[in-house]
């Protein structure tokens, strides 16, 4: 069984084709732009290299967010449309979990994060599982980084925590200052999401996939205009 995996939810573009027990191929670029232009050519190029045709795919796994709204939509729209056209299942995988997978095996807390502007981050807390994956321990959220670091101290106490993601660099000083020696900063390559992880996580959940029509992004927050409108209704 072969599954195509896609991540365009943040700055990195990554695509992979995986089987249950191995990665057939993976492509990752950190050009930080033009996901719309490059995604389909990247998929096409990788599948040509692997000598695979689309109808040889058994499913698709996609980074569902959080992340750049537009980036998430490009990935999700592409994945659900391809799955629908091929009559195969599509599953969404958290973009944060994809990054957290780079730290699978780490015995402390695993903290992937993406910057969400105005001092906020998209983040969550993960822990290594016996099967070699990582599972959510502290729910994903959009939160002020300061508040998040306080919450981590409360939840995880003196345990070491590995901070992951391209955007950790811009918050490194604050994290180091607040968390002290508990903070572990990952090697550079661990910061980038890899579609191979998304494929590996997704392939094990293909059976539970719903209709491709129901696949929607996970933004973690409503659109600003909608938030304002809702506040006005309740205020």
């Amino acid at each position: 069984m072969r599954v195509l995996a896609i991540d365009t939810s943040n700055l990195v573009l990554s695509v992979a084709v995986v089987e249950e027990a191995r990665v057939l191929g993976e492509m990752m670029t950190n050009l930080q732009k033009n996901h719309s232009v490059r995604l389909m050519d990247s998929i096409s190029g990788l599948m040509d290299e692997l000598n695979l045709l689309p109808d040889e795919l058994a499913g698709i796994a996609v980074a569902q967010g959080p992340g750049s709204y537009t980036g998430v939509r490009i990935g999700v729209a592409t994945a659900k449309s391809m799955a629908w056209a091929l009559g195969i299942p599509v599953v969404g995988v958290s973009s944060l979990q994809a990054v957290a997978m780079n730290a699978a095996g780490f015995s402390g807390g695993i903290v992937p994060m993406f910057d969400a502007r105005r001092g906020q981050v998209y983040t969550g807390g993960y822990r290594t599982q016996e099967d070699g994956s990582v599972a959510l321990a502290l729910p994903e959220r959009i939160v002020l980084l300061r508040e998040w670091l306080d919450a981590l101290s409360e939840e995880w106490g003196d345990s070491p925590m590995m901070f992951l993601g391209d955007d950790v660099a811009m918050h490194r000083d604050l994290i180091a200052q607040r968390m002290g020696r508990r903070a572990v900063f990952a090697p550079a390559a661990f910061n980038h999401p890899r579609a191979a992880h998304i494929g590996w996580l997704g392939i094990r959940r293909l059976a539970e996939a719903g209709s491709p029509h129901d696949m929607v992004p996970e933004y973690l927050q409503v659109a600003e205009a909608e938030a304002k409108w809702l506040a006005k209704q309740n205020g």
């Binding site: 389909m40 096409s44 689309p54 729209a77 592409t78 449309s81 391809m82 629908w84 056209a85 091929l86």
Partner: peptide
């Protein structure tokens, strides 16, 4: 994105 995906798939 949808049109390209369907075009590629089929």
């Amino acid at each position: 994105a949808a049109a390209k995906a369907i075009s590629f798939a089929r």
